[in-house]
Simulated assay, not measured.
Amino acid sequence: MGLVAALVAAVCFGVATVLQALGARASDARGSEAHGAASGGVGGTVRAMVNLPFAAGLGLDGLGFLAQLVALRSLPLYVVQAALAGALAVTAVTGALLLGMRLGRAEWLGVAGVCCGLAVLGATAGAEGHRQPGGGFHWALLAAAAALGVAGGAAWRLRGPVRAALLGLLCGFGFGLVGLAVRVLPAVELPQVAPLLRDPALYALVGGGAVAFLFLTEAVRGGSVTTATAGMVLGETGVPAVLGVLLLGDGTRHGMVPLAVAGFAVAVAGALALARFGEVGGVEPSR
């Protein structure tokens, strides 16, 4: 069920990206007809958000996040993070079908790499680790969220590809921080939520997710989509995978470590090959 949830999350996030791009394009087209120019600014954003495809995309984002939470509670962190990076394959294929995006041979190989890598990870993954690193780690996660905010503020002032790469990498660290926080949060039942509200990891989760979305939005808006998304993929997969193994006790089935490492590498490499689909609205359609 954990693997199914991870794949559901990837599909939701990947399709949501395309639906949001579709909704934004439809909103811009209506704005152009009404005002003689493409709509923009706050008004354009509001119109896009009340557009049916865009709203459906937001709904899928919410569903994907819930599926991600289920997956993180039952799978090793490296499997879930690789699956979420694989959402780029879903975006690429869905974008080709609905938006007429061009996929070259390298990108189709990237889609195949993501699928094969995730299949290997699913076959070799063990159960999630049950090691708890202690309360100090929860505070360390909150400190890391604050440090990401400070580092992002410094990267924000840069220019060019370096800025996009750093903001994308910090965004990936933020998403990885969300995964780590979910893994260490205590299990609670309503209405007894006081232990959850007292846990600094909860606020690390909120802070990490907030800075991740902010940094990714700014990185793709003011820089190279491919560079920013590549940084995000590396940040959200590499470090969380290592920490999951070392601190949380994640592992593979007996004797399958080399195969799992190979599957992880292939899945991430495939996602990197699809990095230009990190903001599908900016990808040139086929003619």
Rank of each mutant, 00 (worst) to 15 (best):
A34D: 03
L109W: 11
G255N: 09
L99I: 11
A269K: 06
A260N: 07
G64R: 09
L185Y: 02
C116H: 14
V70E: 13
L190F: 15
G208M: 05
G231D: 01
A56Y: 14
L180R: 01
D61G: 13
A38E: 13
F65K: 14
Y78C: 09
G62I: 01
E279H: 11
G110E: 04
L202T: 04
L77G: 00
G168N: 09
M232H: 13
V266D: 05
G207I: 10
G122A: 12
V8S: 05
V150Y: 12
A125P: 09
V162H: 15
V11A: 01
H35E: 14
G152C: 03
G231C: 02
V114S: 07
A24D: 05
A262D: 13
L118I: 11
A165K: 06
G263A: 14
L202A: 08
V11L: 05
L103N: 10
A29Q: 09
G135N: 10
S74Q: 09
V178S: 04
L196N: 08
V150D: 03
V184Q: 01
A144G: 06
T217D: 14
L98P: 12
A29D: 04
A145Y: 06
W108T: 08
L170T: 03
P161V: 00
T252M: 07
A127K: 11
V90G: 07
L216Q: 15
L169D: 01
A123R: 14
G179P: 01
Q20E: 12
L97T: 14
S224F: 02
G57Q: 05
M256R: 13
L248I: 02
V120E: 05
L197G: 12
L205S: 04
L7K: 08
H254A: 15
P53E: 05
V268C: 03
P133M: 03
F13Y: 13
G95A: 07
F277V: 04
T91W: 10
G251C: 10
G153D: 05
A147P: 07
L177A: 06
V245R: 00
L180N: 01
V184W: 00
L141W: 02
L169I: 05
H254L: 15
G41D: 10
L3R: 05
G244W: 01
L214R: 14
L205Y: 12
A187P: 15
V184D: 07
V283Y: 00
F54G: 00
G44P: 07
Q20T: 03
D250T: 11
L142P: 00
P200C: 07
Q132T: 14
R47S: 07
V211D: 01
L214W: 14
L72K: 01
G95I: 03
R221D: 15
A147S: 03
G152P: 07
G176P: 02
G149A: 01
P76M: 03
G207M: 11
V220G: 02
A5S: 14
L177E: 04
E279D: 15
P240K: 07
